[in-house]
């Protein structure tokens, strides 16, 4: 009889043993940092984290382990809002970092003025990737809406790059045709040529490369280079349009998290190191255009020069952009509903 009592106790004891595993605390022994980033930066931050861990050890003697989380930019921002303890965020657009202040006061509203180059250590732009020999003869934005051309771009509702793509096309049409109505028509035609709208930048590239869908992929410059590297030489060609958008992915320290965890010094060190020669060179090596002109000079041959339109000039900031284009029932939704009437 005692035997069965002990069995019962054993189960109870096992339960108690499991329980503490269940509620792991966030404290750890070495300093850990969490960088919440978007999809295409994975390779760059893998390399950068190693460089930074070495640098920080040499500078302060502290061990630091940097964890990374990657996903679609909007989703990543939401995760931080919902309580993911990211010490730093390195997202695709400043609108997503603004959200950290808008929905929960996790970050200082003037975060963008805290670091040089309004918190963008590197920038990029939107380019095209076409198949071998450029069979559809695509050289600029106008060629995307020629009959029979299929355009690969993700859904702006879920993807940061898709918003940049949208804005780049809009800015091009605005500059060329001079009116909002014409720009609306132009962008609408581009979406008429899109057979699918993937959820993120990377899924869109994969559909283009692995599934053989579409004739042209609109994407980040660094993403296009990455795709070139991952495929057989000559399989794809990178096309730089005459005009594109100045895409600036910003970085910021999440105040509420670092203050609670006591990691402000490391987190700030982490972001500042991005501006050092080492950080800037690494960014260039991973196909981001370095913001520091001195380092950018070294990569002069790597990146084609083109006219880059800053979004603030045409669109007056992300808040306006989201309200005008991407919120429910705004321009993007209108375009999609007109196409699929």
């Amino acid at each position: 009889m005692l035997l069965y009592k002990t069995s019962a106790w054993k189960i109870f004891a096992a339960f108690l043993m499991v329980a503490p595993l269940f509620f792991q605390t966030t404290h750890a022994k070495t300093v850990t940092l969490l960088n919440v980033s978007y999809d295409p930066t994975r390779a760059f931050y893998h390399a950068y984290n190693q460089a930074f861990e070495k640098y920080w050890k040499a500078k302060t003697g502290d061990d630091v382990v940097v964890y990374e989380s990657h996903g679609p930019s909007g989703k990543q921002a939401r995760s931080v809002i919902d309580g993911m303890q990211g010490d730093v965020v390195t997202l695709a657009l400043s609108g997503d970092i603004d959200a950290l202040n808008k929905y929960k006061q996790l970050i200082d509203p003037n975060w963008q003025s805290r670091l040089p180059y309004h918190s963008c250590p590197y920038y990029s732009t939107i380019v095209f990737l076409v198949r071998k020999g450029n069979p559809k003869n695509i050289h600029d934005w106008d060629d995307l809406i020629k009959p029979g051309v299929q355009v690969m771009t993700p859904n702006p509702k879920t993807s940061g790059v898709a918003r940049w793509n949208f804005l780049a096309a809009w800015a091009y049409a605005l500059e060329k045709y001079g009116s909002e109505d014409r720009a609306y028509d132009f962008v609408k035609q581009i979406y008429q040529h899109a057979p699918i709208l993937d959820t993120g930048a990377r899924s869109s590239s994969l559909s283009f490369i692995q599934r053989g869908l579409g004739d042209v992929l609109i994407s980040w410059e660094n993403e296009a280079y990455m795709a070139l590297n991952e495929s057989k030489p000559g399989e794809y060609e990178l096309i730089t349009p005459s005009v594109s958008i100045l895409a600036e992915p910003p970085v910021a320290v999440v105040d509420s998290v670092v203050d609670k965890k006591g990691t402000r010094a490391v987190a700030e060190g982490y972001l500042n190191y991005l501006y050092s020669d080492v950080g800037q060179t690494l960014a260039g090596e991973y196909y981001y255009r370095p913001s520091n002109p001195k380092i950018a000079e070294k990569f002069k041959d790597k990146f084609h020069s083109l006219k880059l339109i800053p979004i603030d000039k045409v669109f007056k900031g992300w808040k306006q952009i989201n309200n005008k284009f991407f919120k429910d029932n705004k321009i993007f939704d209108k375009i999609m509903s007109e196409i699929n009437r």
Binding site: P72, G74, K75, A77, R78, I81, A99, Y103, N155, K157, T158, A194, P195, I196, L197, D198, T199, F326, K327, D328, D333, M336, S337, I339, N340
Partner: peptide
Amino acid sequence: VFIAANIPYKTEILPILIVSKLDQFDYTG
């Protein structure tokens, strides 16, 4: 999500729409 083209009005199903609402901070939707 992999096999659908996720085009609004054409191949977008409800769970994908939930995720897309969430990623736009639209908890209410």
